[in-house]
Design a protein around this nucleic acid. Structure first.
Length: 608
DNA sequence: TTAGGGTTAG
């Protein structure tokens, strides 16, 4: 068998898409070189692609030298391969040099350069290059070329044609992606509308992924509907973006529908799609379905393991997260920084203090993973929540990284939890220096004072907040019913069914009182009269969403609510009561974790 | 030879 047949075989089978097989192809290439066999141009291009995909910089550079020194036809194909290699390993100036040195640049070379510029954040330059290319039906270009032809100047006609290749669908897709990646959705959409009949599934995938990257999850789902209307066949990549949108929205019904679509249409569930499914199920409250997908996967990589560990952590299954971590080790997969975020988070949410300390201390020494600010953040949270406020503060003081607002914010919450206003004030001061516009910091300090009935301080905090011009992010909860996501903002009555919800909320309040529930008004920002405080708390968004869920679904049906902020103590207590009174399982995802309410209890064991 | 997808601390 010739080298070419072997390497081509690898290439066509998709074998090279897997990083684990990279060593095989490189070994093969080395053997070929040692056998004094001169690689063909096709093989060189292929090896360059490998070097680009897996960032094997030294070999790529060696290839460049070899190409230069030997008698290769240093043509547009090899040059484009080199350009792409340099761009993908992060060396834009070398990529530019290769591009500038090209005597002839075709559409592929231009596209590769658009992509290179975009990857390095030079969208304006990418747009200029894109604009310099001809439009397929451009009257100006066509008439110029025709003119030269008519006067018999074929060389000039050819020159214009060659120097300004016609944009193809790849050019459009690369440019749309460039705008999406910098968050400029309006320019991306404008281009998307102009693509015309060449638009393909990748164009749709790029736009849908762009919506997801810009956190426009509903627009991503709507775009998918349009894609279906236009009868463009979705691919695995479409599904990954849609599942990510569902995960963020907590749209389990839609996520399940997508899973069904994947199975029905026999789409290939690889590690990326598998991971998207695991993440969707986990973030939509169904950890059992997430584990089911995980165990059925044929190929699992570190993303899949991390998603499962993080998922278990969010659902409060600390010991199970540790078990999966141990299994991962047994399978020979090395943990990375994300694994340790999951693991430490699991210890934190389950109160596993000594396990958390052990894993944190072993990160570097045993696993060779350097702790980042996020790992110190987890530890400050773990210690703080356990009431070890002094130790948490000490860790912040001695840590080798500059503490950020997240780290201080975590300690402030612990000060609130363990009612330490003195330390809370100090911490807030640090927080306001770091992030003076974050209203959440004032709210936490204010709530800390309120929980101690220090109303003057609450008032001072409120005034400070007004003077600084900061605003609290409004609490927002959503619930999915019949494939539609309903959103409720605290105190907002704009939902068309609000009158009925309101009646139901009054009914809930009465039943709660009958069952002995006492409102905890410490979670209200202002010092107002008790009765008013109680009303204000009962209009928190999660309470409205739960009420809407109760009145709109049949008895016994599980209710799932997603909240953008952490749930307050009072709503947490009230929902525990509600789960018992109405005999419903209520699953709530707040900004921090999942709460599974059942029969008056919560899976977080009131520790969150 | 060029374009699209995944996990992460408050």
């Amino acid at each position: 068998m010739t080298w070419k047949v072997m390497i081509d075989g690898y290439s066509k089978s998709g074998y090279l898409r897997n990083a684990d097989n990279l060593r095989d192809i490189l070994t093969l290439y080395n053997e070929m070189r040692c056998s004094d066999v001169c690689p063909s141009q096709n093989i060189l291009s292929l090896i360059l692609q490998c070097c680009a995909s897996f960032c094997v910089t030294p070999l790529g550079k060696t290839l460049h030298c070899q190409i230069f020194k030997s008698n290769f036809n240093y043509d547009v194909v090899l040059q484009t391969g080199l350009l792409d290699f340099y761009a993908k390993v992060g060396d834009l100036s070398s990529a530019k040099r290769v591009f500038d040195e090209m005597s002839h640049r075709d559409v592929v070379a231009n596209n590769a350069m658009i992509s290179a510029l975009s990857k390095h954040g030079f969208v304006k330059d990418a747009q200029n290059l894109f604009d310099s290319m001809q439009d397929k039906n451009s009257v100006t270009w066509n008439s110029m070329i025709t003119c030269y032809y008519k006067i018999g100047d074929i060389d000039s006609a050819r020159l214009i044609f060659d120097c300004n290749p016609i944009k193809d669908v790849v050019s459009w897709n690369a440019m749309i992606d460039a705008y999406c990646k910098v968050g400029n959705l309006s320019c991306a959409e404008e281009l998307f509308d102009r693509v015309g009949e060449v638009k393909n599934s990748i164009t749709w995938n790029t736009m849908i992924a762009g919506f997801v990257q810009c956190k426009e999850f509903r627009r991503a789902l709507r775009s998918f509907e349009h894609m279906q209307t236009e009868r463009v066949k979705p691919t695995e990549v479409t599904m990954v973006s849609l599942l990510s949108a569902c995960a963020h929205l907590g749209a389990l019904d839609m996520g399940e529908w997508i899973h069904g679509y994947i199975n029905k249409n026999k789409l290939r569930i690889d590690a990326v799609l598998g991971n998207a499914l695991i993440d969707m199920y986990s973030k939509c409250g169904s950890i059992a379905a997430a584990l089911d997908v995980f165990h059925k996967l044929h190929v699992k990589n570190i993303y899949c393991w991390n998603s499962v560990i993080v998922g278990l952590a969010m659902h409060g299954y600390g010991n199970e997260a540790i078990d999966y971590f141990l299994s991962m080790e047994k399978e020979g997969i090395n943990p990375d920084g994300v694994t340790f975020v999951g693991l430490l988070c699991a210890c934190c949410h389950s109160g596993l203090i000594s396990a958390g300390r052990n894993y944190f201390s072993q990160m570097q020494s045993v696993y060779g993973v350097e702790p980042g600010i996020e790992h110190f953040g987890c530890m400050v949270d773990l210690l703080g929540r356990s009431g070890l406020l002094v130790e948490a503060l000490e860790l912040i003081t001695i840590m080798p990284l500059k503490p950020n607002a997240v780290v201080w914010g975590s300690l402030l919450r612990s000060c609130h939890l363990h009612k330490d206003p003195e330390l809370g004030e100090q911490v807030t001061q640090r927080l306001l220096e770091l992030d003076p516009k974050d209203g959440g910091n004032y709210v936490f300090l204010s709530n800390l004072y309120a929980s101690l009935s220090r109303w003057k301080d609450v008032d001072r905090c409120r005034k400070l907040m007004i003077e600084s011009g900061v605003q609290k992010v409004p609490g927002c909860s959503s619930i999915e019913l019949d494939n539609a996501v309903h959103e409720f903002v605290a105190g907002d009555s704009s939902h068309p069914q609000f009158p009925q919800i309101n009646v139901f909320l009054v009914d809930i309040a009465k039943k709660l009182k009958d069952q002995g529930y006492e409102p905890d008004t410490g979670s209200v920002l202002h010092d107002i009269y008790d009765e008013e405080k109680e009303t204000s708390v009962s209009y928190h968004s999660e309470r409205i969403a739960v009420a809407f869920g109760l009145m709109s679904t049949p008895p016994g049906k599980q209710i799932r609510v997603i909240k953008n902020l952490r749930t307050c103590n009072d709503c947490h207590t009230a929902i525990k009561f509600i789960s018992k009174i109405y005999k419903r399982d209520i699953i709530m995802r707040d900004r921090n974790r999942f709460h599974h309410f059942r029969n008056g209890l919560c899976s977080c064991k009131d520790y969150w």
